[in-house]
Structure formats: structure tokens, C-alpha cells
Design a protein around this nucleic acid. Structure first.
Length: 509
DNA sequence: GTAGGGTTAG
């Protein structure tokens, strides 16, 4: 079909004076895949002269299309094309191609270096378009030192007041965890766009500065109408804090103050679902879900995970069935994380085994650590230690400490697993070198206690004292009167009951 | 002819 379109086009146009224009139209409007592009490219090489000014323009469009779909093809094209027409545009385009790639962002940084060192007839200088691409790669790779050097180049080239570049710098510093640098860039910007505020708010949320994020949101409202991005950041903050009333306030804000597009935005709604689930309001999550005008895979996944997290396997699995039946959506790797987690929390061994099998057999999804973690924990909790170990032995990826820990944890709750427990404890310490093993020692001492081997319990406790290992108490948070309260393991039930009876006010609108 | 930010996981 595609070949036919191009062939017809070519036959009709080779002799035409408008040949370049038609080829350009092919790239701009008809090209749908890399294979189309390769054919057009080959035809361009055969039928046009490389030095023709229109050919140069055509090349920029081919490079642009390739940069969006195939970074390596774009790079090979760029190497040839750049000889005939060296300019910053082509460098920027090929840098962008790699900064968007999933696993080769480091090439974007290397190409930037190459750009600086490039010795040609024409000296190419990075411009205001170059930096957002390279900074994006640095942000993703946590390349703090490289990004800082870029910041110096930006100042040196007189680009320090550019809004796009500054937004990218805030995002870069935020991703690398440097709130101070991000804040400095934000405060010193001569001019801010709505994106500048969004990036700053998101950085504050990611670095757990929720109060400041909210203050920033309020200040933003003096000059901009908060959009869906800002709302999502605020909702993620609420989900992280378990701050239900603030989340409800944000929900009311979306419904009353934002333009209707924000209220219908799938991503905003997904954040609402996640917020209500994480804050324990599953019924509200369900209401929001049912009223959504459009749902995507993440919407379904969030509900499955939400119910799984709260131990309601029946509901979680019901959403899974609805997702594939009525939603006609293909489950993802995360869907099965939720489904297996639901089985795990409810001890549904047969179902768990079955979902684990169909995940690969019916949906072609290869299991990752999260899936193995659920299955192994499910089996181990059910006392099927041998089967759990068998699953681990057949894993296609290296088991991590979490996997070994679930087996050790299960052994510590029943008798007879001393040898396995010792083996697991050894594996945990091997796979997590240098971290805190307090939990491992506690579990191991419990294994000995269950077996009434009090001498060994004493040795483990002594080992902990000798090594200076102390067990931090488990901690959780709950919202009371709009304030997040921390709970530590060991608080009395009466205290918790009293706290949970406290009145939590409705959100203000 | 090119630019900036976002969701779900053991």
C-alpha cells in the first residue's frame, strides 16, 4: 500500500519541476513510519542533487522525522547531511533524538561534547534550543556534574535569562535532588511562565517539601490559572502524605475553579484515584472512577492496586476482569503487580499461581522482581517454602534481598526452618552489602525463639549489640484534624482507636 | 525548520 502510494507519486512527479515540493509533502504529511521514511530517503538520494538548496531543506525534514522515531537512523543521516549543511539545528535535532530515547540518553550528552569539539569549516555554537535537550538527559541520568558545567556554558553564552532554559535547569536540579539550586534558578528568573511554576511545585513535591509546594501553588495563582500539571503535583503530594482533606480540597478546586478540560483530564483523574486509594477512601475512588469520561490502563491499574493494597482481593480481581472485558484493554506488567499483590494479601495461592502463569502465557509479559516478589511471598506465607524456593531457583533475573527476606520472614513464623533461615539471612546480607540488617537479625532471632533455641537467640542479640545494630521501630502516618500524625509500632490499640475516632473536617472549597 | 514539566508496582 505504502510502496504503491510512493511509486505513483514518483512516477507522476520525477519529471515535474515541483519534485522537491512533492517529496517534502510526502515527508511532512504522508509519512507514517520509519520504513516509509527510508523509502523516501532512498528516492531523494537517487533523484535529487545534494547541493540543491531545496534538497537541503528536504534533508532537515527527513532528519526531523527520523529524530522522532529512530535515533540511530537520525544519527547516521546526520553524519552525512552535516557535511553538506553544518548548522546548530541538525546538532540540536540529533541531540533531541537521544534525549528522548529510553535507554541511550547519555549519547545526547556525548553529542553535545562532540558539538563543542567539532572542527569543521563553520564553527557551531550551542544555542537556546540545545540546552533543554541536553539538560533533560542530565536530569534523567542524575548527571549533576555535567549539568552544572552546562549551567556555566549557559551563563557564558548569555542565555541565562531564557525561560525554556531556566525551566529545564529547575527540572534538572530538582531531579538531581538539589532543591537549593532549583530554587535559586527559579528565584533569579527575570520572567516566569506557567511551566516555571509547575516545575518548581513538582520539584518541591518530589523532594517532600509539601508545605512549600502548597505555598508556591498559592503564589502561582496570583499570575496564572493552575493547570492540570500543577493539580497533579498537588494531588501526588496529598497521596504521599495521606492528606485526605487537602486532597479533597484539590478535588473541589478542580471541579469548581478549573476549566472543564482539567476535570476531564485522564491524568488528573488518575491522580485523584491514586490519592483517594492511598488515603483509604476507596469508595470515593470508585465514584471518581465510575464518573470518568475516559479511562486508560493506568486508571484500571490504580484501582486494582488500590483495592489490592487494602486487602480487598475480590474487588481488585473484579476490576481486572472488567478491565479486559468492558474496558477492552491489554493488561500491563503493573496490572499483574496489582493482581498478584491482591492474591498475596488474601492468601489466594491457586489464583496467584494461575495469574502468574497466564501473565506470560496469555499476555506475553515477562515477570520482573515485583511479580516474583509477590508470588514467592504468597507461597512462603502459605507455608509452601519448598515451592517458593523452587520459583526462586527458576527466576530469569537475579533475586534481590526482598525476595530472600519474604522467605526468611515466613520461616520465622513457623518451626523447622532453621537451616533455610540461616541460608536466607546469608543471601540477604550478600545482596544488600553495607545496608542496615537490623530486620534480618530480628527475624533470625525469632526463628531461634520459635525453635526454643535460647542460646542462639542470645548469640544473635549479642551480635547485634557488638555490631551496634539497633532496630528502628516501624512507623506509619494518619491524618487527624488536617494534621499528619506519626505512629510507631508498639502504640497501644486504645490510643489508635481514640485517634481514629477524632473528627476529620471536610475540605474547604 | 528545533525548546520546558506529569500518573500506577513486591
Amino acid at each position: 500500500m505504502v510502496v504503491a502510494i510512493i511509486k505513483n507519486y514518483m512516477e507522476a512527479t520525477t519529471s515535474s519541476s515541483n519534485h522537491h515540493g512533492r517529496l517534502l509533502d510526502l515527508v511532512n504529511n504522508q509519512c507514517r513510519s520509519m520504513s516509509h521514511l527510508k523509502q523516501i530517503h532512498a528516492h531523494t538520494l537517487r533523484t535529487t542533487s545534494t547541493s540543491h538548496p531545496h534538497t537541503l531543506f528536504l534533508h532537515t525534514r527527513i532528519l526531523h522525522f527520523a529524530s522522532l522515531h529512530d535515533p540511530h537512523y537520525a544519527f547516521r543521516f546526520f553524519q552525512t547531511y552535516n557535511i553538506h549543511n553544518p548548522n546548530s539545528f541538525s546538532w540540536n535535532t540529533v541531540i533531541r533524538a537521544f534525549s528522548r530515547s529510553t535507554d541511550q540518553k547519555q549519547v545526547a550528552i556525548l553529542l553535545y561534547l562532540e558539538m563543542l569539539c567539532h572542527q569543521g569549516d563553520v564553527i557551531i555554537t550551542p544555542d537556546k534550543h540545545t540546552f533543554p535537550f541536553v539538560l533533560k538527559a542530565c536530569a534523567y541520568l542524575f548527571a549533576m556534574s555535567e549539568g552544572r558545567q552546562l549551567h556555566a556554558h549557559i551563563v557564558k553564552l548569555g542565555l541565562a535569562s531564557d525561560v525554556y532554559i531556566n525551566n529545564s535547569l529547575i527540572h534538572f536540579y530538582g531531579s538531581c535532588g538539589s532543591l537549593e539550586d532549583a530554587r535559586d534558578v527559579f528565584l533569579e528568573m527575570p520572567e516566569r511562565s506557567v511551566v516555571s511554576w509547575n516545575v518548581m511545585i513538582d520539584t518541591l513535591v518530589q523532594l517532600n517539601q509539601f508545605d512549600e509546594a502548597l505555598m508556591c501553588f498559592r503564589k502561582m495563582q496570583q499570575s496564572f490559572e493552575p493547570d492540570s500539571f500543577a493539580i497533579q503535583s498537588i494531588l501526588r503530594a496529598c497521596a504521599g502524605l495521606g492528606a485526605l482533606s487537602l486532597g479533597m480540597w484539590a478535588h473541589a478546586y478542580v471541579l469548581k475553579r478549573c476549566n472543564p478540560q482539567v476535570a476531564d483530564d485522564v491524568l488528573v483523574n488518575n491522580c485523584l484515584l491514586d490519592m483517594y486509594c492511598k488515603c483509604g477512601s476507596l469508595e470515593t475512588a470508585r465514584l471518581v472512577f465510575e464518573r470518568m469520561v475516559k479511562r486508560d490502563v493506568t486508571s484500571w491499574n490504580t484501582m486494582i492496586l488500590g483495592f489490592a493494597m487494602h486487602g480487598d482481593a475480590v474487588e481488585a480481581l473484579e476490576y481486572f476482569t472488567r478491565m479486559t472485558d468492558e474496558g477492552r484493554l491489554m493488561p500491563t506488567s503493573i496490572t499483574f503487580s496489582g493482581v498478584l499483590s491482591a492474591c498475596r494479601h488474601s492468601g489466594l495461592v491457586d489464583e496467584g499461581r494461575n495469574y502468574f502463569t497466564i501473565m506470560t502465557a496469555d499476555y506475553g509479559i515477562e515477570p520482573v522482581l515485583e511479580h516474583y516478589g509477590c508470588l514467592v511471598d504468597l507461597l512462603a506465607r502459605a507455608g509452601l517454602i519448598a515451592e517458593a524456593l523452587d520459583v526462586v531457583s527458576k527466576m530469569t533475573i537475579k533475586p534481590d534481598a526482598v525476595i530472600w527476606r519474604s522467605i526468611l520472614d515466613a520461616c520465622s513464623k513457623r518451626s523447622g526452618g532453621i537451616e533455610i533461615s540461616k541460608e536466607m539471612a546469608k543471601k540477604i546480607m550478600e545482596s544488600e552489602e553495607g545496608s542496615d540488617f537490623s530486620g534480618v537479625y530480628v527475624l533470625l532471632s525469632r526463628v531461634y525463639a520459635v525453635a526454643r533455641k535460647w542460646d542462639e537467640v542470645g548469640s544473635v542479640r549479642k551480635l547485634m549489640t557488638d555490631k551496634g545494630v539497633t532496630k528502628e521501630p516501624g512507623c506509619s502516618t494518619i491524618e487527624i484534624d488536617g494534621l499528619a500524625h506519626e505512629f510507631f509500632a508498639g502504640y497501644s490499640l486504645a490510643w489508635i482507636l481514640k485517634a481514629s475516632l477524632c473528627h476529620i473536617p471536610n475540605a474547604e472549597t
